[in-house]
Computed example of a mutant assay.
Amino acid sequence: MTRRTKTPRKPLVKKGSQTSLKDPVGVYCRVRPLSFPDQECCIEVINNTTVQLHTPEGYRLNRNGDYKETQYSFKQVFGTHTTQKELFDVVANPLVDDLIHGKNGLLFTYGVTGSGKTYTMTGSPGEGGLLPRCLDMIFNSIGSFQAKRYVFKSNDRNSMDIQCEVDALLERQKREAMPNPKTPSSKRQVDPEFADMINVQDFCKAEEVDEDSVYGVFVSYIEIYNNYIYDLLEEVPFDPIRPKWNSCSTPMRSTDFVPPQSKLLREDKNHNMYVAGCTEVEVKSTEEAFEVFWRGQKKRRIANTHLNRESSRSHSVFNIKLVQAPLDADGDNVLQVKFCSVWSFSCSNQILNFWN
């Protein structure tokens, strides 16, 4: 006769404790100020979690009074006077802190053309957005613990290999000897086109960074256009023998832009999805990372609309991959990779329609 043991009770989770579960997805709303003071406003902030949509005056007349006003709830609502710093502290700071401690994350902006997605992500001169602030926090946190360039080397399996000091040194010398090095250099002057965007005055860093490890940061930038994935950092050399063709089925001149080939989406051994063959660039500072981002930004597909002179026609994803590896007892040699966490900035031009 066997005796069945009782099923053990699950331990009670106290409110406010560190073991309490976080919501996997947080949805925030940011209300953009009106472009002109005489414009009709259809959104009213009820409280810090709720907005109410008012039907436009012209719509009311056409429907003969048959309309309704709807309220929507979010994790938090940011009004028209919210600064970039206030938004970063609530929305992005916790995600960067999780990234540095080995957790993946995604920051996704969604809205109509001209709703402020690009301003929120990248900012404007003198008012840096979420991306430069997040990069600044990452490098403020791991700055003195970064591995030398090329110690970490990405492979085609969505993971990282570790090179010995000699191999890393040889690769550094090889890259520096190239006439046009693809790797950004910290010695290069910051592009004045975005210099004011990354000049973040508010110092921010994560706490409890593992000082017995070294870190590396890699970035990549892709866009999804017509259900195809393109690498915005891929360098496509012009081939004079094989003519390139544009959308009008006519040969392209050598001076025309040649779009990159589409990439494949694959699954690694840990069941994580990744873009195979995507260019990953190792960066050592906020300036280097934003320079790579800006280079890819210029290759995105854009079009002129009534609301935006340069509206994106695609969905873009900027990935930040943070690699951590412990040092040996002497602190001289890098051991195997401890974790490789990824954080993605994503921006979509899809239309979110509130009206029924």
Rank of each mutant, 00 (worst) to 15 (best):
T120L: 14
D66M: 00
A303Q: 09
N246Q: 07
L233A: 12
N140H: 15
N93M: 07
G123S: 11
R301D: 06
V334Y: 03
V209H: 14
K299D: 00
Q84A: 14
T70V: 14
R149W: 04
F238N: 06
T109P: 01
I229G: 04
F194K: 15
S249W: 07
C204S: 15
R188H: 10
Y110C: 07
S154H: 05
E267L: 06
Y59C: 03
D136I: 11
P251W: 10
N104V: 08
K14E: 15
L307T: 07
E211N: 05
D191S: 11
I320G: 01
C134P: 05
S144Q: 14
L61F: 03
P94E: 13
V236W: 03
H315Y: 01
K284H: 15
L34I: 08
G114S: 13
F88P: 09
H101T: 09
F290S: 07
R9V: 10
F203C: 03
D239F: 04
G79P: 05
Q52L: 09
E165S: 01
L135R: 04
P240N: 05
G16H: 15
G116H: 06
T80D: 09
N272Y: 01
E86F: 04
E193Q: 01
D89K: 00
L233M: 12
S141Q: 10
E280Q: 13
P11T: 10
Y28C: 05
Q201V: 14
P326C: 13
F339R: 15
N64G: 01
K22Y: 01
R9N: 12
V190N: 00
M1S: 04
L53M: 13
E208N: 14
Q297T: 01
C278G: 14
V283N: 09
G129K: 02
K22V: 02
S346L: 02
G105Q: 04
R149A: 04
S154T: 12
G123D: 12
H306D: 05
T118A: 09
Q297I: 02
K205L: 09
I162F: 05
Y119C: 13
I320N: 06
I138A: 00
H101C: 05
C42T: 12
T55K: 07
L322S: 11
K205S: 08
D239A: 05
K6Q: 06
Q350F: 01
V219Y: 03
R133W: 02
K244L: 05
E86G: 03
F203W: 06
R175G: 04
E235R: 02
F74H: 10
E193F: 01
T113W: 12
S186A: 12
Y225V: 03
E86Q: 11
G296Q: 02
T113L: 11
K182Q: 14
G126I: 08
G129I: 01
H306S: 04
N356W: 09
V45C: 06
M197Y: 00
K187H: 04
S254H: 13
N180D: 15
P181L: 13
K187E: 06
T122K: 01
I46S: 03
E234D: 07
I46V: 15
R4K: 12
I229H: 10
D38I: 00
R242A: 11
C41G: 02
Q18L: 09
Q261T: 12
A147S: 08
T305V: 11
T50P: 08
L21R: 15
T7E: 04
S35Y: 10
Q84Y: 03
